[in-house]
């Protein structure tokens, strides 16, 4: 039951993904070709709002509604940020979707994208398999 609230937040996000058209392969093409401000506007605004929210939460030492302390772990430096980042970027341009929009695309009726999602799961699995042999 306690997980249902995350389902609702996810639903809001899915609606926004479709209505701002960021699930569109065309919007991603525009972004990587610098032909439109749209995607930069969406991501830039989201970062700004996120940044302000995180600062407020930290200053107020706010707790979650369940009384849990809010702790955000630092991200660590690693060459994998660049190597993995380049790979994901290439995939993002090809599929026109980062992982979130993949789920929304399928929900919005583009059923064939379930193949892309399955392949993404296979990609994650393969990473897990090869992890110890990859530079990190």
């Amino acid at each position: 039951m306690s997980s249902l609230k995350y389902l609702l937040v996810g639903m809001l996000l899915g609606v926004v993904f479709v209505k701002t058209e960021i699930i569109s392969w065309f919007r991603i093409q525009e972004m990587f070709r610098f032909h439109s401000f749209h995607m930069y506007g969406v991501i830039g605004t989201a970062v700004l709002v996120g940044l302000l929210s995180v600062q407020i939460i930290k200053r107020l030492k706010a707790k979650s509604i369940e009384g849990e302390e809010i702790v955000i772990e630092d991200k660590l430096y690693s060459p994998s940020l660049i190597l993995g980042g380049l790979m994901f970027g290439m995939g993002w341009a090809i599929t026109g979707a980062c992982p979130g929009p993949l789920f929304a695309q399928i929900g919005a009726g583009f059923g064939a994208i379930s193949i892309t999602l399955l392949s993404a799961v296979a990609g994650t699995w393969t990473y897990g398999l090869l992890r110890s042999r990859l530079p990190h």
Binding site: L83, G84, M87, T95, A97, L102, I115, A122, G123, T124
Partner: peptide, 19 residues
């Protein structure tokens, strides 16, 4: 579908996150 999806799944985990 296949190569694009694979790169998304492999790359995001290797980089430790996505967008």
């Amino acid at each position: 579908f296949v190569l694009g999806g694979f790169l998304v799944g492999f790359g995001t985990r290797y980089a430790g996150g996505c967008t």
